[in-house]
């Protein structure tokens, strides 16, 4: 079924956006107001949608070339010199190639660096596992001092970028380029470290992040037709980790996690760790199992159950395990 993996047919995707647009608009606005804001890139001006920024502020784009270790090190140096660097590149190379720089120069040193992982998850589709960034949660989550945020929609992307600029400390923003709708939540406030209630429910809790949140909402609607009341929580902050939200989810007795990432060590891993120690309940993890075969984004979402029906099935399974 065409379009089902990403959650809608072509016709109903009006108003859906590639979150990079919100990122680019917001960083340009911030740079206008604050001359200390700079961007650091690795031959990634185009893929970071920074063409407009470069036209306006050519001196404030530091392109180190294809050199990710230097990319992140330079970010730490710029922070030392009083700048507010947004270090932007494909998240696969930014987090994997430069992992030690992220660990030592940024997180351990508490440098005021904002890492912006572009085209995260499996945005690069058939370019394959070298270009997928699905292990980043597992290798960044244990790093002290590093705030890890995966915005779910354009609104949250813009808010997270603004927040990161004002916050003194290391941040990783994991951005997607898969078009998503804005979530329909009244009076939203972006609060890092706090999971956001998207839809109340009493039988099972679906904790999702990034591109999976709007799919989780559709899954909850599907489950409602079977008289299953599913709570949906936007778990955009992986670190700091909102333990209270997980406790509340566990009190329902059944949990599903959903993420565009490897389930080993990501959001599902974090939730499973916490519940196993504190409130053991069934946890079903929706996500990718490991290196993926050749396929488009849509093919891979469908094949591995990162879909409305896949999330709903995981919810039923979690509920069935609770009943036993």
């Amino acid at each position: 079924m065409a379009g089902s993996a990403t959650g809608a047919g072509e016709a109903s995707r009006q108003g859906w956006h590639d979150c990079r647009e919100a990122w680019a608009r917001t960083i340009e606005g911030l740079a206008e107001a604050d001359p200390n804001i700079v961007v650091v890139v690795n031959d990634s001006v185009g893929s970071s949608k920074l063409g407009g920024f470069q036209k306006k502020f050519p001196d404030r784009v530091i392109n180190v070339g294809i050199a990710e270790q230097t990319l992140v090190g330079v970010g730490a140096g710029l922070a030392n010199g009083g700048k507010i660097p947004f270090v932007s590149g494909a998240s696969c190379f930014l987090t994997a190639r430069a992992l030690e720089q992220v660990k030592a120069d940024v997180a351990y040193a508490k440098a005021n660096v904002k890492l912006v992982g572009q085209s995260s998850g499996i945005a690069y589709g058939e370019l394959g596992p070298t270009h997928h960034s699905i292990e980043d949660f597992a290798w960044l989550r244990p790093l002290d001092n590093l705030t890890v945020i995966t915005p779910a929609d354009p609104w949250e992307t813009a808010e997270a970028v603004k927040w990161a600029a004002g916050y003194e400390g290391p941040v990783y923003l994991r951005l997607s380029r898969m078009p998503v709708p804005n979530l329909d939540i009244p009076n939203r406030v972006f609060r890092p470290g706090h999971a956001e209630l998207v839809r109340e429910g009493t039988d099972v809790a679906i904790l999702a992040c990034g591109t999976l949140v709007h799919l989780a909402v559709q899954a909850a609607n599907l489950l409602a037709k079977e008289d299953i009341s599913a709570r949906v929580v936007n778990f955009s902050s992986l670190a700091p980790f909102d333990r209270d939200a997980v406790r509340a989810a566990a009190s329902l007795g059944a949990i599903v996690t959903a993420e565009e990432a490897n389930i080993r060590g990501g959001l599902g891993g974090a939730v499973a760790e916490f519940t196993a120690e504190n409130m053991p309940v069934p946890v079903q993890r929706v996500g990718f199992p490991g290196f993926l075969p050749t396929g488009s984004i849509e093919d891979l979402f469908e094949a591995f159950g990162l879909t409305v029906t896949g999330i709903a099935a995981a919810a039923r399974k979690s509920l069935a395990r609770r009943a036993r």
Binding site: E126, L127, G128, T130, H131, P293, T294, G295, S296, D299
Partner: peptide, 13 residues
């Protein structure tokens, strides 16, 4: 080339 499950992935394996 780059078709679903192809041996000819976008990058060589």
């Amino acid at each position: 080339y780059m078709q679903p499950n192809s041996k000819l992935n976008g990058h060589p394996n």
